[in-house]
């Protein structure tokens, strides 16, 4: 579903990596690994369409492959509740705003938590609220930057369930994670970026 060809990405005048080629098949999870600062986030940002590539290309089939991007920042307004945040994202993306409660419940946030300001939530609860966006709209490609950050064992199991369902449904995932991936995910492939930038 996604084909990366001899991709080079730089930050400032520094080349992060060069000549990266990799393909992603439907139902496959690509786990991008590497030391801090080797360009994992930049790679995901480039695939999401936030960052221009210095060289090379990213092709997808179909051309306009819909993708979810969850960065390491949660994109939640601290003064609003998770429910309001989700309603906003649903409205902005043309999804059903009524689904906000349902998807927050699906990531394990109770009715009380949904109505508190995001500012007062724990890191794990914030992360769950951010990941709930994945369920607002079905999109074939998920790009997740450290999705397991701040989650407890329960939360990790929950996200593993979401990933499993998505992969079984023929979706693709590209994610970074500094912790080991939860067990039981089908079709995991590792992509190690090193300093020299060669996969």
């Amino acid at each position: 579903m996604l084909q990366i060809d001899r991709l080079s990405i730089g930050r400032g005048d520094r080349v992060l990596f060069a000549g990266l080629s990799v393909a992603l098949q439907p139902g496959e999870l690509l786990h991008v690994r590497g030391a801090n600062g080797c360009g994992k986030t930049s790679l995901l940002e480039a695939i999401a369409g936030l960052r221009r590539c210095a060289q090379g290309g990213i092709r997808s089939t179909p051309d306009e492959l819909a993708r979810h991007w969850i960065g390491h920042r949660n994109a939640l307004s601290p003064s609003l509740t998770p429910r309001e945040n989700l309603q906003f994202w649903a409205g902005l993306n043309g999804a059903d705003t009524g689904a906000a409660d349902e998807v927050l419940a699906a990531v394990g946030l109770g009715a009380g938590v949904r109505r508190r300001a995001v500012r007062s939530l724990s890191a794990g609860q914030k992360r769950r609220s951010a990941l709930a966006r994945l369920l607002l709209q079905p999109r074939p490609l998920w790009l997740l930057d450290e999705p397991l950050d701040g989650l407890d064992a329960d939360g990790i199991a929950l996200i593993a369930g979401l990933l499993r369902d998505h992969l079984h449904g023929g979706g693709g995932v590209i994610m970074t994670s500094h912790q080991p991936l939860p067990a039981g995910l089908p079709a995991v492939r590792e992509l190690a970026l090193d300093r020299a930038g060669q996969p």
Partner: peptide
């Protein structure tokens, strides 16, 4: 500023609007 800091702006850039 707030939207840029918490990552909302990124999501807005990627939204269909």
């Amino acid at each position: 500023r707030a939207d840029h800091e918490d990552g909302t702006l990124e999501q807005m850039v990627l939204s269909p609007l």
